[in-house]
Deep mutational scan, measured.
Amino acid sequence: MGFKLLSKLLVYLTASIMAIASPLAFSVDSSGEYPTVSEIPVGEVRLYQIADGVWSHIATQSFDGAVYPSNGLIVRDGDELLLIDTAWGAKNTAALLAEIEKQIGLPVTRAVSTHFHDDRVGGVDVLRAAGVATYASPSTRRLAEVEGNEIPTHSLEGLSSSGDAVRFGPVELFYPGAAHSTDNLIVYVPSASVLYGGCAIYELSRTSAGNVADADLAEWPTSIERIQQHYPEAQFVIPGHGLPGGLDLLKHTTNVVKAHTNRSVVE
């Protein structure tokens, strides 16, 4: 069995187990497998329904001669939608809004960016022009300005110390501490036991640490421990890039980060 097929099978099995364990909360999309990078042309966006009122959005972007996937989250909030992270750029984010209108038909009224990198804030200006209120932590807003990236308009308070959590509509926002970046936030959907790890969490097929220019490698494993301790009931975990899975993604990420750190020390 090929690795790609095995990865998709694991996603399907995880979703099936969740649907059985929580039949009222989960209505997993039966329309197909989780979209992969090879299936999404740059400039297009796919939506994948995880649970009743919960979707991931998947886009792709060219970077350094390669094409990478990027995940975000959409959560229903009454007759409105909360968006977590842009679709990595203005063109993708405009396509995301169009796809949401086509498939869901509810307005996106608020959006949260989970850290300051372009795959999370690139497209904020498109959201703002569409009347979406954009939010991020003060740290993310400051770092985005320093980096020359787009800056969300509103500040999220109460997320300055490791372990801080605040309720934001249908989700809980959690600051686990520094990891992929010093400002990275985690998003949890309690009604569906869905954990969105953003770039602080890796997919299972990833074996290298990737972009760690703004990471705190020493603190990252401790931050992941905080996530595990705060959300032990999480059933569906979405990484910032690639295929979702279960809580095993947290341990896998820790292993990859520690291996990278150990290699760096040896070198």
Rank of each mutant, 00 (worst) to 15 (best):
Y188R: 02
I58F: 14
G242V: 01
T134L: 11
Y231P: 00
L195N: 00
L24K: 07
L83W: 01
G105E: 15
A98F: 05
S56I: 03
V146T: 08
V126Y: 15
S161N: 03
E157R: 07
S27P: 05
L250P: 07
A94P: 06
S193E: 07
N92R: 10
T93S: 11
I224W: 00
G148F: 09
A19S: 10
M1Y: 15
N262G: 07
A95H: 15
E219V: 06
A165K: 09
K8Y: 14
G2K: 10
A111E: 14
V237D: 01
E39G: 08
N149K: 06
S30L: 08
A213D: 14
T182W: 13
W88N: 13
V266C: 07
Y68G: 09
V212K: 09
E225N: 02
S223Y: 02
P152T: 07
T14L: 11
K258I: 11
G246C: 11
I238M: 15
F26Y: 04
H241L: 01
V112W: 12
T222A: 08
L143H: 09
E150I: 15
S155R: 09
V54P: 01
R128E: 06
E44I: 04
G246H: 05
Y34G: 10
Q229Y: 04
V132I: 15
L143T: 12
E99S: 15
G245R: 10
G246W: 07
A144P: 09
L47A: 11
V54T: 06
V237M: 05
I17F: 07
E39L: 04
S193A: 11
P69L: 10
G122Q: 13
V28W: 11
V67Q: 05
Y231E: 02
E150W: 13
W220Q: 03
N211A: 08
T14W: 12
Q235R: 04
I201S: 10
K4F: 15
I186W: 12
G158W: 08
R120T: 05
L143A: 05
E172L: 11
E150H: 03
L250Q: 03
L10W: 11
N71F: 00
P239R: 02
S7W: 14
S38D: 04
I224F: 05
L81S: 11
V11K: 13
V45R: 13
N255R: 11
A215N: 13
G43Y: 05
G197S: 03
H117Q: 00
K8F: 00
V146R: 13
V121P: 02
Y12D: 14
D77C: 11
D52E: 06
R46L: 09
S162E: 07
W55G: 01
A98C: 15
S191I: 05
D79Q: 04
G43S: 11
A51K: 03
W220R: 02
L217F: 03
L143M: 11
V11T: 10
P170Y: 03
I238E: 12
V28F: 14
V108D: 01
A178W: 07
G43L: 04
E172R: 08
E145R: 09
